[in-house]
Design a binder for these strands. Structure first.
Lengths: 107, 107
DNA sequence: CAACATACCTCGCCTGTCAAGGTATATTTT
DNA sequence: AAAATATACCTTGACAGGCGAGGTATGTTG
């Protein structure tokens, strides 16, 4: 991993929501997907992931259900709710604004 | 202020260094300048500012000296060191990479 | 003379990250 | 068959940065 977590801090929830908007998924898979998407430049650590799930669920942005695996370990799937969809749009706008501001300040 | 602090977190030191690279300055002024530069969309809170100064000085990225004001309150000026200049370049590269990664993940 | 602006600074809480640990099942290697 | 690895879940507690709230001192303005 080459990116320090403090810079990514605060984006975890948006990253998860974005990923779940593509399709429902589960913790272990999301962790692997993020690494793959970023070619190992960024890893969303498991502990970070699960604490974000908790916040997202409490906020009503995601809901969960158990997969019906007949083989292998059980999987807890996550799905974005309607409120989550809206929250994602808001996160995204915030990111665009933050990007502009930081770019302005780091000249 | 419209940008949440968690998104800006971790950029404080880079923002300060960038500002000081333009010219030496002091706490109160930097605080005002950042607000002006961002048209009040972002405020670097004083407590945040001073704790960042401490870290930057401890890291050897800035040095300080007292202004020679004959009127008004005394001012503690900050100046970027050579190491600070290098650190800034590093922060900047990190920011560019983080930007790419987040843009990739928030589709 | 009260209020506000300039200028400095500290303390302690809050929150997100994550190392380290744990559980259980399935597959692959020795 | 035992050991190692991979898949999958989860919690605890430490740590660090941000910042609200508070403090000090001087100068200016209504």
């Amino acid at each position: 991993m080459s990116i320090t977590s403090d810079i990514l801090r605060g984006h975890t929830e948006a990253i998860i929501l974005s990923h779940l908007l593509e399709q429902d998924s589960y913790g272990y898979q999301i962790n692997k997907d993020i690494m793959k998407k970023t070619e190992n430049r960024y890893e969303l650590k498991e502990a970070t992931l699960y604490s974000a799930f908790k916040r997202l669920e409490q906020a009503g942005y995601i809901r969960t259900y158990w997969g019906d695996e007949t083989v292998g370990a059980r999987r807890r799937y996550y799905a974005v709710t309607e409120n989550g969809r809206k929250a994602y749009q808001s996160y995204k706008r915030e990111w665009e604004e933050a990007k502009t501001i930081i770019d302005q300040l780091l000249k």
